[in-house]
Amino acid sequence: MGSIRLESVRKVFGDAEVIPGVDLKINDGEFIVFVGPSGCGKSTLLRLIAGLEDLTGGKVLIDDKDVTGNAPAKRRLAMVFQSYALYPHMSVFNNIAFPLKMAEMEKTAIDKKVRDAADTLNLTDYLHRKPGQLSGGQRQRVAIGRAIVREPVAFLFDEPLSNLDAALRVNMRHEISQLHHQLNTTMIYVTHDQVEAMTLADRIVVLNEGRVEQFGSPLQLYQKPSNRFVAGFIGSPMMNFIEGPTAAEHDAHTIGVRPEHIIVSKKKGTWSGVVTIAEHLGADTFLRVECGAIGTITARASGEFTVGYGDTVFLTPDSKKTYRFDKNGRTIGHRPQQADTTGNQKTP
């Protein structure tokens, strides 16, 4: 059990309206990722769901029960913080046991639960240590352990991996994904990281200035972005946007084409330009090409593509995968779900 519904949730800090009104319906067992630029209100939205901030307006429902006025502990949610927020003076065992102690569970039951959780998370050897004596990854696992022993109806993660190095991040990402499959509990996960969002999520919420720009599966967002913001935010390197006469040829204010949907050639193509940066990664080659009036275009050639600084190349955008946007940044053409917040996973 763990469906979460937000109904026109609003949050104002002083005179700054951080969340102007969000409707969202999250199904039981789903893995939801909130992404968006820094300061767009991801953490705030998560804290509103957790009950750590008071709502200015609207309602939060968990399992169809209104919990808007309930204290955090009453909502049966567990949160993992970016700074881990472990209790530094308690041993790992006591850290994990803390929520159970607060729930006044009896000692033997606590002991068993903590050991089970430690077992799942490979922490058994560290139970007597203080958090200060653990590595970043181990601390993160303790924080997760503290969350799972409570058997919450949903987990909330606020950028849990951003303090880890790249290799460990990949590792922990897999562990969290596995944990989700094991527990089958609803998870809401906030991140900056595209790759984390695309790989972990059942559905992604793209936030911008406190508004939901689009809500859908990773591939939906990639293939059918509902507007220019989502198109630019999802995908790496970022989609190329071209305005002016070139866009007008397509009856659009702006057109967008992803680097991987451009054919690069040394002989012929629609646009020509001069390479200003060539990044040879082995599997891919990324080129930044100065195309005169069209602007600077990023393109991807798969495999090794031997060009260097100052060489002339020709680029041909894949016309079937060229996106068109109107003056307000909305996608023209295909009918993507407009900021679909109704919770249906099917594409219309």
Binding site: A50, P72, A73, M79, F98, A103, R146
Partner: peptide
């Protein structure tokens, strides 16, 4: 916040 969520 964490302690509050933990029910303290």
């Amino acid at each position: 916040d964490a302690a509050e969520m933990d029910g303290a």
